[in-house]
Design a protein around this nucleic acid. Structure first.
Lengths: 159, 159
DNA sequence: GGTGAAACTTCTAATAA
DNA sequence: TTATTAGAAGTTTCACC
């Protein structure tokens, strides 16, 4: 995978868009003392290069009634079942991320649920997948960081 | 935390915005056969209620040179150190999310690094935090889901 | 609540530098 | 690569359903 070179202006454009994707290009332009047309061209270039894959809303899940987060480690009976199990996991709503991992677990995923009852249902669904030997759950008591802030302060600055 | 009631129109507006935050309100309006003004009012209401906390770009980290993802479980010498350690973790760039968890680990975090060398540096930093007894790393070989898609298909539909 | 149209702001693509 | 500009497009407000 090719590494794309961004200059300082690109970084600053990304910083502003990461903060708020609907910020007018004219605001970015003013802030960087270049024209809005240039912002447009640069953003388009980053989109075309695939650096910017898209945009999404940040929602308050607690307010939406989903305040339960847990990580579930999955042990398989046999690693050859990884792909199959992963596909089944993909079918389960509320599993928000899944990884094939080295180390203790074969598969590792994050779930977001309404409450413990709801989480139990989800975990039982995971347990019931053919090929899953057992699972191990870690309940999040508090989430303390988020990707968004990190993006600006670290990911881009030294590329 | 109050649970906010969204109707079907709100859900559909969110679905479209989650897919692409810069989709014109006029497009949403056409698609739902209501006026753009109404879209505007409803989005504003959801913003004011805090349901919509913000928006962010989805970037291709691999293209940016950050293709390494790992989860690190942290064992503390004493749980009373949780807050202190969490604060130190917050200072470490490339740790993208951290949770206080029940179960095996006291703290659980996700890191995003350039490569294994870089990841090693980050993990050593975590190990060096005062109060950290030891860490356990799970390297992601493949990330197979993402929050974004999940949001639409599951989180909202039954609220 | 929602609408539709007016007033205002922003985007975009082409041209020029 | 960047700036300018003008027409197209989108947003916001508001009087009225």
């Amino acid at each position: 995978m090719a590494k794309f070179k961004l200059d300082e202006i690109d970084h600053q454009i990304l910083d502003m868009l990461i903060e708020n994707t609907r910020v007018p290009f004219t605001d970015i332009a003013k802030s960087l003392s270049i024209s809005a047309g240039t912002i447009h061209v640069r953003v388009k270039k980053m989109e075309d290069a695939g650096i910017i894959k898209g945009s999404s809303l940040t929602l308050d899940y607690k307010k939406l009634g989903y305040s339960f987060i847990a990580y579930v480690g999955i042990f398989l009976q046999n690693t050859s079942q990884t792909k199959f199990v992963l596909e089944r996991i993909n079918d389960i709503p509320f599993v928000t991320v899944a990884h094939i991992t080295t180390g203790k677990f074969n598969i590792f995923c994050k779930i977001r649920a309404k409450n413990t009852e709801h989480a139990k249902d989800i975990i039982f669904m995971l347990d019931d997948i053919e090929g899953v030997y057992r699972t191990e759950t870690m309940i999040s008591l508090e989430e303390s960081l988020n990707d968004k802030k990190r993006l600006m302060h670290s990911v881009f600055k030294d590329l």
